[in-house]
Amino acid sequence: NQASVVANQLIPINTALTLVMMRSEVVTPVGIPAEDIPRLVGMQVNRAVPLGTTLMPDMVKGYA
């Protein structure tokens, strides 16, 4: 099963992502693939992302 990117903490709206904010986990539904974590660093979320939430492509500005 493919691992997805999951929020390791509450990520406030418009926050630029850092490695410490994300972890990989096998979840359903599948979100952004864990191998894209390096690409996500520095990108901003367009909404608040609660701890444990799977990051979906539409949550990250410029990802989709």
Rank of each mutant, 00 (worst) to 15 (best):
P12D: 14
T54D: 01
A3H: 09
M43Y: 13
P12E: 08
T18Y: 03
P50F: 11
L51S: 14
A16K: 07
E35K: 02
T54K: 04
R47G: 08
S4A: 12
A16H: 09
P50C: 04
V45T: 14
Y63E: 08
V41F: 04
L55V: 09
T54W: 02
I37A: 15
A48V: 09
A48I: 11
R23T: 13
P33T: 08
P33E: 04
S4D: 00
Q44N: 07
P33I: 11
R39Q: 07
S24A: 08
I32M: 05
Q44D: 08
P33N: 13
L55D: 00
V27L: 04
V5Q: 01
L51A: 12
T15R: 04
E25N: 08
K61F: 04
E25Q: 05
R39M: 10
V49W: 02
L40C: 03
V45N: 02
V6W: 03
T18A: 03
K61Y: 10
A34C: 15
G62P: 04
N14M: 03
M43T: 09
V60L: 08
L55P: 00
L55Q: 00
N1H: 06
T15Q: 05
V27D: 11
N1L: 11
N8I: 15
P50L: 14
P50W: 15
Q44T: 11
D36T: 13
I11D: 00
M21F: 12
P33R: 11
P57R: 08
R23E: 06
Q9V: 11
Y63V: 04
E35S: 08
G42S: 12
N46V: 13
Q44F: 14
L40F: 03
V30E: 15
N46E: 10
G31L: 01
V5Y: 00
M56Q: 09
T53S: 09
D58F: 07
A34H: 12
A3P: 05
V60E: 01
Y63S: 06
A64N: 08
L51Y: 09
A7P: 02
T18E: 05
A16W: 07
L40S: 01
A3Y: 06
R23A: 09
L55E: 00
A7G: 06
G31Q: 06
P12F: 11
M56V: 12
V26H: 06
N8A: 15
Q44C: 02
P12Q: 11
V26Q: 13
M56T: 11
P57I: 04
G62H: 11
V41Y: 06
P12S: 04
L17Q: 00
S24R: 03
T28Y: 04
K61N: 11
M56L: 13
L10H: 13
I11P: 00
M21V: 07
A34P: 10
P29F: 15
A48F: 07
L19T: 12
P57G: 06
I11A: 02
I11W: 01
G42V: 01
M56D: 09
I32G: 00
P57Y: 03
V27W: 03
T15H: 11
T53P: 00
M56P: 01
M43V: 07
S4C: 02
A7K: 00
P33C: 13
P33Q: 09
A64I: 12
L17M: 08
K61M: 08
N14E: 08
Q2I: 09
G31V: 03
M59P: 00
R39T: 04
V6S: 04
M59H: 13
M43W: 07
